[in-house]
Computed example of a mutant assay.
Amino acid sequence: MDIIKIAALGLAGTLLGIMLKGQKKEYELFISMGACLCIFYFIVTKLEIVLSVINQMQNYVKIDAGYVGLLFKMIGITYIAEFSANLCKDAGYQAVAGQIEMFGKLSILAISMPVLLVLLETVGEFLT
């Protein structure tokens, strides 16, 4: 039950941060970042399982390896942008967090353009 470990880690980090908030504000930020990094490590281990299943699905259904690579990049961009934006929000830098989120969204849009073009070509072939 990894969720229990993650919940306990998150709650412990939050409570410790609240206790230190009154004494040393900078320690609260370090505790928060440390807890986030530990939880992010657990996320990465679960992400490895998802990626291996996607690779197995690629063996069953013939999908171009380039598209699977694009999917992996999109997943990576999403997680990294969300993680870093949340850290910035926690530190009180909402404007920076918003810019990170915007850049992540635009990066995913830029990466997905080749897939969108192929989709439009396929739809165009069916219509003609």
Rank of each mutant, 00 (worst) to 15 (best):
L16V: 10
Q58G: 03
N55W: 00
D64K: 11
L51G: 03
A65S: 07
K25T: 07
L106P: 00
G76P: 03
A110D: 08
L119W: 10
M1D: 11
L11N: 01
A95T: 14
I31D: 03
I6N: 02
F42P: 10
E28Y: 12
Q56E: 11
I43W: 13
F72H: 13
V44N: 13
L70H: 14
I111F: 15
A12N: 00
F83E: 02
A81F: 04
A85D: 01
V50M: 13
G69T: 12
L15W: 11
D90S: 05
I39V: 04
G124M: 06
I31N: 05
L87A: 12
V118F: 14
L70V: 11
M102Q: 13
L47Y: 09
L47C: 12
G98T: 15
I39A: 01
Q99R: 15
S32G: 05
L16I: 09
F72M: 08
E48A: 15
L47H: 03
T128W: 00
A110Y: 12
C38Q: 00
L37V: 06
I77D: 04
A95G: 07
T14Y: 07
K25V: 04
L117M: 15
G104M: 04
T14G: 01
A8Y: 00
A7D: 06
L15D: 03
N59E: 11
G92F: 12
L16M: 07
G104F: 02
I18C: 01
V123L: 12
I100Q: 04
I54W: 04
Q58H: 03
L120N: 11
A7K: 08
I49N: 15
A81G: 05
L15E: 02
L11M: 01
V115C: 12
I43G: 02
I6Y: 02
I111C: 14
E26T: 05
K46P: 11
L109K: 10
M57G: 01
G76S: 05
L116E: 07
Y79W: 04
T45M: 12
I77P: 07
V68W: 12
N59D: 12
A7Q: 08
D90W: 13
E121V: 08
T122N: 11
Q23A: 02
Q56D: 08
F30W: 06
A97P: 10
M57I: 06
F72Y: 14
I100W: 03
M33V: 10
Q94K: 14
A65K: 06
V118N: 14
T14H: 05
Y67D: 09
E82C: 05
C38A: 04
L16K: 05
I54N: 09
L51C: 09
I18T: 00
A95F: 09
E26N: 05
Y41P: 00
E82K: 12
L117A: 15
M102G: 12
G76V: 03
D2G: 02
Q56M: 06
L37K: 00
L117I: 15
L15Q: 01
Y60H: 01
M113K: 14
Q58C: 00
I4L: 13
L87C: 09
F126H: 08
K62E: 11
L106W: 02
L47G: 11
L119Q: 08
L16G: 10
L120H: 09
L70F: 13
Q99A: 15
V61Y: 06
L11Q: 01
Q99F: 15
I3Y: 13
